[in-house]
C-alpha cells in the first residue's frame, strides 16, 4: 500500500513498542565492557600480581612478577623455544593419536562383548589405578632412549577417559534403534558404525577434550623423568639453576599449548559434528 492510512490508537501504541533499541554512547560503552569482562578480569589479576610483588618485595624465586617472567621468556633464544615446544608437542600428539587409535576400537570391543568386558575391563581399571608418574621411571628404563617411552607414558595417561566415555556412549544408543537395525538384518558392523558410533560421538568428544590436555600432562611428566628437550625438561633445568622466572615462562607456554589444543578439538567437533554439541554451544 502506498497511500498513508490513518493509524488507529492501537497501531500507534504497537509501533512505539516495536521501536528498535537505540544505541546511546553510554549503552555502547556498557556493551563493550560486558564483552571484554573476562579479558579485563585477567588483566586486573596480572596488575595486582605485578603490584604485589613490588609492594611486598617478594623475591623472584618465590613468585616472579609478570614482567620478570615476560623478560625471562624473551631472553631465551626463539630457536631454543621452538626446539622445546616441538619436542613436547610431538610427544603429546603422538601419544594422543595412539590413545585414540587404541581406545576407540577397544571401547567398541568392550561394548560388544560381555566376555571382553568381564576380562579386559578389570585389567584396564588396574592399569588406570597405577600412578603413571610412579611407573614412568620404570618405563624409561624398559623402553630406553628416544620418544617411545615418553609416548607410552602420554598414552597411559590419556587413553582411559576415551575408553570409558566411548563405552558409555556406545551403550547409550536407544534400544529402538538397535531393534530397527536388527529388524533390517543390517549386521553387527553396520550397527556399530552407522548407529552406535555416531550416537556415541558426544561422549567421545567430551573425552577427547579431556584427553588432549591430559596428553600434555603426560608428555611433561615423561620429560621430568628423562629427556634432553621439551618444556618439561626446560622447566626442570630452569628450576635447578634457580631461574624461576624462566621456569614460569615455560609453564605459561605449556598453558597456551594446552589451550590451543583444546580449542582445536572443540573446533573439529563444531565443524564436523555440530549436532553432538548442546544447542547453546553451537556456532
Amino acid at each position: 500500500m502506498t497511500s498513508p492510512t490513518p493509524q488507529t490508537a492501537a497501531q500507534t501504541r504497537l509501533a512505539a513498542l516495536m521501536q528498535p533499541v537505540r544505541m546511546t554512547p553510554r549503552r555502547r560503552l556498557l556493551d563493550m565492557l560486558d564483552r571484554f569482562t573476562p579479558f579485563l578480569a585477567f588483566v586486573a589479576v596480572l596488575v595486582i600480581w605485578e603490584a604485589a610483588t613490588h609492594i611486598f618485595a617478594i623475591p623472584s624465586f618465590l613468585l616472579p612478577a609478570p614482567t620478570a617472567i615476560l623478560g625471562a621468556g624473551i631472553a631465551v633464544d626463539p630457536m631454543v623455544w621452538l626446539d622445546h615446544i616441538w619436542a613436547t608437542v610431538r610427544v603429546a600428539l603422538t601419544g594422543y593419536a595412539a590413545s585414540i587409535a587404541i581406545a576407540i576400537p577397544l571401547a567398541v570391543a568392550l561394548s560388544d562383548s560381555r566376555f571382553l568386558k568381564r576380562t579386559l575391563y578389570p585389567m584396564l581399571i588396574v592399569v588406570q589405578s597405577t600412578p603413571v608418574v610412579a611407573v614412568a621411571p620404570i618405563i624409561v628404563v624398559t623402553l630406553g632412549a628416544g620418544d617411545l617411552p615418553r609416548v607410552v607414558i602420554t598414552f597411559l595417561i590419556a587413553f582411559f577417559p576415551i575408553v570409558v566415555s566411548t563405552t558409555t556412549g556406545l551403550m547409550a544408543t536407544p534400544d529402538e534403534l538397535i531393534e530397527l537395525s536388527r529388524s533390517l538384518r543390517a549386521g553387527r558392523i553396520r550397527e556399530i558404525y552407522q548407529i552406535r558410533l555416531p550416537y556415541a560421538l558426544p561422549y567421545v568428544f567430551s573425552a577427547l577434550k579431556i584427553s588432549v590436555t591430559l596428553s600434555i600432562i603426560g608428555a611433561v611428566v615423561a620429560e621430568f623423568v628423562a629427556a634432553q628437550s621439551g618444556l618439561g625438561y626446560f622447566i626442570g633445568f630452569s628450576t635447578s639453576f634457580f631461574k624461576i622466572p624462566q621456569a614460569f615462562a615455560g609453564l605459561i607456554v605449556l598453558v597456551v599449548i594446552s589451550l590451543v589444543m583444546f580449542r582445536a578439538v572443540a573446533w573439529v567437533q563444531n565443524r564436523f559434528a555440530p549436532w553432538s554439541l548442546p544447542k547453546s554451544e553451537r556456532k
Binding site: E176, E179, A186, Q194, P198, L201
Partner: peptide, 22 residues
Amino acid sequence: FQRPTLLPWLSVIDNVTFPMRH
C-alpha cells in the same frame, strides 16, 4: 516406535532412506 528415534546427524530425507543405507 514410541519415540521417533531418528538419527540427529542425518537430514530428514537421509533419515527416511536410512533403512536402505543400513
